[in-house]
C-alpha cells in the first residue's frame, strides 16, 4: 500500500460539516452542468453536405 492521500486531506474528505457544504456545492454545480442544456454540434453547412 502506498499512502497517496494525506491525513489532512482525508480529514477534510470525511469531515461531515465540511462535506455538507461540498454536497450543496456539488449538487448545484452538477445540476447546472447537466441541466444547463444540450444541443447540436452541426453547422448548417455540415447539414447541407450530409
Amino acid at each position: 500500500m502506498t499512502q497517496r492521500i494525506s491525513k489532512n486531506k482525508r480529514f477534510w474528505m470525511m469531515n461531515p460539516v465540511w462535506q455538507f457544504f461540498k454536497y450543496l456545492w456539488l449538487s448545484l454545480k452538477g445540476m447546472l452542468i447537466v441541466a444547463g442544456g444540450h444541443g447540436s454540434t452541426r453547422s448548417k453547412d455540415y447539414q447541407k453536405s450530409h
Binding site: I5, M13, P16, Q19, F20, Y23
Partner: peptide, 17 residues
C-alpha cells in the same frame, strides 16, 4: 470548468440522493 472531480463523503450522499 465543467469537467471536474471531487472525492469525499459528499459524493456518497449525492449518489444516495
Amino acid at each position: 470548468g465543467k469537467t471536474f472531480g471531487e472525492i469525499g463523503l459528499a459524493g456518497h450522499w449525492l449518489k444516495l440522493t
